[in-house]
């Protein structure tokens, strides 16, 4: 697999040289491969937000490198700017960054900054709106007339419209009702399948990432203690608990069953897998 984004020995220290000095990242080696659906988990203050802000050059490393397609993104200001367009970043609660008179104009803010021509901007805005399920009529509305969930979709469309090769989303489902959560996750999955872009989703909900991502990176106390497929990561159940992250409910049930002496595979994390594992254990499946 081709690594699209890499960090090498990435360190970031906030307020260096003051009494408020704080190390947010320490010698982090992180890799995202082209086309994968990657999850980053960590509790509040673990350094995950600092990490993603390095990936598109919003924060400059205190030391270490960030490579996009093998090039150091800080090697040249033009490269840094290009990286911002290639690596789209959707912040937490992105609906608070909307500012234009109409939804259409707000989505076109990114493409306009890329200096694309009118026709291309129009195509991208409409396509991005379609990905997130916004209707033609909504494009002409003021973003402030929409509901919370709709506003969030507008904000996500604003980043998708830049057609980034890597799309990073920081807790895209925070504060939404279950229907809204499913809709947003569905939109992201559709985008991933249709464009083949790399998706990096930051979350602290194990249930959510377990359902969606192909690979997981755990961030804790400024380092990455482990990464791998959800199945591999959830084997570290006990360590995850001490990090305050916890494992999906199904995994917890199965870990406990094992402790009780039931011979069963503990690396399950969805209801379907649980069903199969139980059937296998009973010798039915």
């Amino acid at each position: 697999m081709h690594p699209i984004l890499e960090t090498r020995k990435l360190c970031h220290v906030y307020s260096q040289g003051t009494p408020f000095e704080q190390t947010a990242l320490h010698d982090v080696d992180f890799t995202a491969y082209a086309g994968e659906y990657l999850g980053i988990i960590g509790h509040t203050g673990s350094g995950k937000s600092t990490l993603i802000q390095h990936l598109n050059g919003l924060l400059k490393p205190t030391s270490g490198q960030v490579l996009f397609d093998g090039t150091d993104i800080w090697s040249d200001p033009a490269v840094t700017r290009q990286t911002r367009f290639q690596v789209g970043l959707v912040f937490q609660y992105p609906e608070y960054q909307l500012f234009e008179e109409t939804v259409y104009k707000d989505i076109s803010f990114g493409p306009k900054n890329m200096k694309l021509d009118e026709g291309e901007i129009d195509r991208r805005v409409r396509q991005a709106a379609e990905f997130v399920g916004l209707t033609e009529a909504q494009l002409a509305k003021s973003p402030f007339e929409l509901s919370g969930g709709q506003k969030r979709r507008v904000a996500i469309a604003g980043v998708i419209a830049m057609e980034p090769r890597v799309l990073i989303l920081d807790e895209p489902t925070a504060g939404l009702d279950p229907v809204g959560v499913d809709a947003i996750l569905g939109n992201i999955r559709d985008y991933h399948q249709a464009t083949g872009a790399t998706i990096i989703m930051v979350s602290h909900s194990m249930e959510e990432v377990a359902r969606t991502v192909e690979r997981l990176v755990v961030v804790n106390d400024a380092v990455i203690p482990f990464s791998g497929t959800p199945r591999e990561v959830f084997r570290h159940g006990a360590e995850l608990e001490t990090m305050g992250l916890g494992v999906p409910q199904m995994t917890r049930v199965f870990l406990r069953l094992r402790q009780l002496g039931v011979d069963i595979d503990p690396s399950v994390y969805t209801v379907e897998q649980a069903r199969d594992a139980i059937l296998a254990a009973k010798g039915v499946g």
């Binding site: 970043l89 912040f91 608070y96 990114g110 980043v159 830049m162």
Partner: peptide
């Protein structure tokens, strides 16, 4: 936060 978000869109 807003500044970072808009910078991410090329502002």
């Amino acid at each position: 936060k807003i500044m970072s978000a808009q910078k991410a869109r090329g502002a």
